[in-house]
Design a binder for these strands. Structure first.
Lengths: 229, 229
DNA sequence: CATTTTGTTTGTCGGGGCGCAAACCAGGCC
DNA sequence: GGCCTGGTTTGCGCCCCGACAAACAAAATG
């Protein structure tokens, strides 16, 4: 049996009353997802919504020509797959575990009553959706007006902020991320990303290895992201 | 005094009970906005939400370097400026009248009670927000993976679908739209847009004049948008 | 009607970054 | 340990498209 303490302190649930919380958690199922497996697939009918208890996953849109675009990364403590909140009956993207993950899964039928009984939960989740809309629009602006160099730098900083772990070298992005992934976040090719990272490594701004990136001189990366120099 | 019949049949309000509708409309103020004036400004504190009763307006993000990106066009019957729905306290963009417009204006204080009393209104608006999120993400994918030619063609088709008016030449986009506007919708320059439109006009796909575009051969434009040929 | 403003067209040039290809490298796995 | 898969680096050539410039056309203004 799951305990409400698992989620009580997570942002989506702050302000919820204890009994509502207990009811909610009792309707959940915990589920493990191995690295690189799908939690749900683009185009599938949306029957559940999720909370990521542990791990990192990426939300990926696939075009009809097979190209992939990473819409966002989801980190521990975030809701995802909440198609039901915006009345969508299919998932608009794939969700793929970037590392081994644990998630709570609810059937969509739980959503409506929960929203109605818990205004603070409703507010929290709609704010989340707003955040994501805003973030997506910001990326749109970025993609429209800034050059590759700046976009890759921004993406690095966003990942660092979201999932950075302090090490003695600098701040490490705390899950495996390839050049290809970065290119799919920034609308370019892995070749270009590779070239940029190589250059930055030589200049000492970052350290990187196979699917590992550590930001050493975040000031300088920020300068690049903002187009100075 | 405003009458509820003004809005009763509009999508956001379908399913609302008559007395709620009357209450809502009685809290509204109608307001006229001349062409090219701002309804609200990016960064201003969000104190109202709006419904466009007549006209067309564009939602424009401005970057710190002064470049503009058109997030979307709003047409008659749509809600806009609903920052309050997603708990934002400032508007994330400018709203500018593309033609003379009439809008209903509500103070934000009306929002919460209306949402709570009218589940169908809540559902409708959250679906709208979902639609906009989805649309924004689709544009992100487009911008990441498709070339200028396809993006401009897609933008034309979207405008035609949203605001097209049948004429004997073809389908006219029913408000003034410049090459510059199109470039700000598609992440390119007005020069490139001008060249593309000129070429398409010679091939007979469209007819265009100063701030006027008519799509003649929508099949062919669709083919371009989908990258065939 | 003359003038100014604003949108549009068109030419030329150059470069950023993509496509393609090949070699390299690190881990995982047997 | 040795193979092999998948990630990374690097070189090269080309082309799309952005930058700049200038002329033009059509409204708007008075």
């Amino acid at each position: 049996m799951l305990d409400k303490s698992l989620i009580a302190d997570l942002p989506p649930f702050v302000g919820m009353e204890t009994d509502s919380l207990e009811k909610l958690i009792s309707a959940a199922k915990a589920q493990r997802y191995a690295k690189d497996t799908h939690i749900f697939r683009q185009g599938a009918t949306a029957e559940h919504f999720y909370l990521l208890l542990d791990g990192h996953l990426r939300v990926v849109k696939v075009t009809e020509h097979g190209e992939q675009v990473i819409a966002r990364y989801i980190s521990t403590g975030e809701l995802f797959g909440i198609a039901v909140a915006i009345s969508r009956d299919i998932y608009p993207a794939n969700a793929i575990a970037a590392v081994d993950c644990v998630a709570l899964v609810w059937p969509n039928s739980v959503w409506q009553p929960t929203i109605e009984k818990n205004p603070s939960f409703a507010t929290n989740t709609y704010r989340t959706i707003g955040d994501r809309l805003q973030e997506t629009q910001d990326r749109l602006v970025e993609l429209s007006t800034e050059r590759v160099e700046q976009r890759v730098a921004s993406a690095l900083l966003k990942l660092v902020r979201q999932t950075g772990r302090q090490t003695d070298d600098g701040v490490l992005i705390d899950f495996p991320i390839s050049r290809q992934d970065l290119s799919e976040m920034t609308g370019t090719t892995l070749h270009t990303v590779s070239r940029l990272l190589s250059a930055w490594e030589i200049e000492g701004l970052i350290k990187s290895g196979r699917q590992r990136i550590t930001v050493v001189e975040d000031h300088k990366v920020m300068r690049i992201a903002h187009g100075q120099k």
